[in-house]
Amino acid sequence: MSISLKKLRLLAQASAFVLCLAVSGAALAASAPAVKGPQVESPKRVLLVGNSYLYYNDSLHNHLRRMVAAADADLGKALQYKSATIGGATLAHHNVDWLTGPGQIGIKEPFELVILQGHSAAALSEKRQADFRTAAAAHAKIIAERGGKVALYMTHAYVPPHKQAKPENTQLIDDFYVKTGNELGALVIPVGLAFDEAYKRDPEIKLHNAQDHSHPSLLGSYLAAATVYATIYGKSPVGNAYDAYGQVDAKTAAFLQQVAQDTVTGFFARK
């Protein structure tokens, strides 16, 4: 009997140890963002810097601007958005010093917020990670010197049959962007997590372009805009009337808006 009890105790201790490792692993996997909400109240002068992930489907900045205007007409009229994109670009390809110079691209006053979106594979190798961090740090320094704040756009993962699609990619992207955002004191916009959550809730939804399984579809761009809106304005997109001029049906819009809000709320609640 004593041997059996001893075995039970050992098994219990082993189980507790495994559970502890699992919890620790989960905690490490879901590292907390240091910046928990918008650093600029109702930003009007916003620059988005990135590549085709932004400019597909009539450009993310247009969907975002229309979503803001649908929620607050006065704020919508005051917006000064610009988007600087280069196909296939990394952050290092952009001359942020020139782009953010007052008046250079038609905005006389300095940008209040600059959203940086890197290459879709930026988190997937050590070299790409290092390149992204170097460029992001250099850009952040310039933006800060001009009185602006930085937000990092967490890209979504590839999906099959894309040759680089892997189940672990979303976690790699999440970890990398949170770590980099914390190093820079930058807001992180969890678009990649919103895509992942939408697929978990509805595996049949089509958020990726059917041709390459990398770029966003219109629904993907809509979800991204709702996630950016919830993150940088600190307001829920749920109930927003913008429907991409009838291209997103009411049920789908409501679904994507809720996913965006839940993702952002959960992301900022991490400890």
Rank of each mutant, 00 (worst) to 15 (best):
L152Q: 04
Y177E: 07
K179H: 14
P216K: 06
V191C: 13
P161A: 08
Q171P: 01
M154H: 05
H156A: 07
R201D: 03
Q164I: 13
D174N: 15
R201E: 07
T155M: 11
L187I: 09
A135G: 06
T155S: 13
V191K: 07
H162Y: 09
M154E: 14
L152P: 06
H213D: 11
A198T: 07
S214T: 12
A194P: 14
T180V: 12
V191S: 10
H215W: 13
L187W: 09
D212H: 11
K149A: 03
N209D: 15
P190A: 09
I189K: 04
Q164M: 15
G185A: 10
H156C: 02
F176A: 12
I189M: 10
V178P: 02
K179S: 15
K163L: 08
K149L: 03
K206E: 13
S214A: 14
G147M: 07
D212I: 10
I142K: 10
A210S: 07
P160L: 06
Y153D: 05
P216E: 07
A136D: 01
P216R: 06
L193R: 11
D212Q: 06
D202T: 02
K141A: 13
G185E: 05
R146P: 01
E197A: 15
P216F: 10
A144P: 00
L218Y: 12
N169C: 03
I189G: 03
S217I: 00
N182Q: 00
I173M: 12
T134V: 10
G147D: 04
L184G: 01
E204I: 00
P160W: 10
I143L: 04
A137C: 01
L184V: 05
Q211Y: 14
